[in-house]
Amino acid sequence: MPKRKFLGEFENLVLLAVARMSGRGYGMAIRREIEERTEREVSIGAIYVTLERLEGKGYIISHTGDPTPERGGRVRRHFAVTPAGTEALHRSREMLDRMWDGVELDGAGQEVA
């Protein structure tokens, strides 16, 4: 089996959030997106750490926005998914689908992220 890069659970969440925001996502917006959709509290530090890791893996790219006074003159960093990132998302989803295929659970179904 060829060696592949797999996404961790949180990486998956962050990468999906970046994809949802179509290139306009920046740290705090991504965080908000994840919090709203998963009802799960996420720290901004964890978001950035993951963003850097994803960029290192080549799944996202970033570009600088303009500095604004509200940001104390600091620039915004916008993130967008690369083709490799898209492929990784597809792979991750297929993997989960294949795992779910034919699984029947009693009672309430398990939440899957």
Partner: peptide, 17 residues
Amino acid sequence: AARLTYAEALIGDLEEE
């Protein structure tokens, strides 16, 4: 604590929010 390439962006995000 933030040994990140985008540490300033992080601080900026928090400040903006």
